[in-house]
Design a protein around this nucleic acid. Structure first.
Length: 274
DNA sequence: ATGTCCACTGGAAGTGGA
């Protein structure tokens, strides 16, 4: 089994003890991190190695930043930045091949306030992701797109939309983009696994939202069809959000059965004949 | 409008981003 997690860490330097404690307790095989808020040189690779993980990362000063951690080895990087989006100055996408699966760690723009240039940037970034999503599916590769999508897909994915109606995370345009991406053939893993339950991955720091469980589901793992058939479990490590000095997001994960190795031709022939 | 937290700048508290 392969446990793949996504976690918006909200400042990896400030949050390093929380990250290490979670890694040691839950032992995910692969971790997609977002909002490093650190330049490349400040990424705490030594401490992460000490916890038993290799890593690749794409940081920037103060904002954004994404990484992929792999237990026991360095992830094999396959891309950083979305194709056709070289003009994008933000560090929001990094991708690696792990156990035969392409894993993308993404941090979609928040988009507030809307309307405005930040919301336009969000939708533009989304279009690049949608285009690349189509390319990935057509490739036939097993893929997981994991990260903070900054989209609440439906009103079932929020405690109460009332005070969020003007927020970029709930706008029809944001939701339409997410729906259009999923409709290409991706499985929204957490919703697939828990069709009838309220699931939250983010509780903002304001107004005691954690204490009241006033959460939003904005961290998602999208699975290509091959990976979707291997989905065996999913969850949110809510205990991490309850820790002192926590990120406003909780780690969100899936368990996927490892791909069965193809039967060698000779052996297959032998079985057939005899 | 508000609430809270992170990181930068500059060398304190204000600002931007979320």
């Amino acid at each position: 089994m392969l446990k793949i997690a996504t976690f918006n860490i909200n400042g990896i330097r400030s949050r390093l003890p929380n990250l290490i404690e979670w890694l040691e307790r839950e032992e995910p095989d692969v971790v997609c991190l977002q909002e490093l808020k650190a330049p490349d040189a400040a990424f705490p690779i030594d401490e992460i190695r000490k916890a038993g993980y290799g890593a690749i990362w794409h940081g920037e000063s103060a904002w954004n930043g994404v990484a992929i951690l792999q237990k026991g080895s360095d992830p094999l990087e396959s891309r950083r930045g979305l194709p056709g989006n070289a003009a994008d100055k933000h560090s929001r996408y990094i991708e690696a091949a792990v156990e035969g699966i392409l894993i993308g760690s993404l941090y979609l723009p928040n988009g507030n306030p809307q309307p405005g240039p930040k919301f336009d940037y969000k939708l533009d970034w989304f279009e690049h992701l949608i285009a690349y999503g189509s390319t990935l599916l057509k490739s036939g590769h097993p893929v997981v797109l994991a990260g903070d999508f900054n989209v609440v897909p439906t009103d079932f994915d929020i405690y109460n939309p009332r005070s969020w109606l003007k927020n970029a995370l709930l706008q029809p345009e944001s939701r339409e983009c997410f729906a259009r991406l999923v409709k290409q053939g991706w499985a929204d893993a957490l919703r697939t696994h828990f069709p009838d339950e309220r699931i939250y991955t983010f509780w903002d720091y304001f107004r005691q939202h954690w204490q009241h469980d006033s959460g939003l589901r904005i961290d998602h793992l999208l699975l290509s069809p091959d990976v979707a058939t291997r989905l065996r479990g999913a969850g949110v490590d809510r205990w991490v959000r309850a820790q002192p000095h926590a990120s406003d997001h909780a780690p969100t994960w899936i368990a996927v059965a490892k791909a069965r190795l193809p039967v060698p031709a000779k052996e297959a022939a032998r079985k057939k004949t005899g």
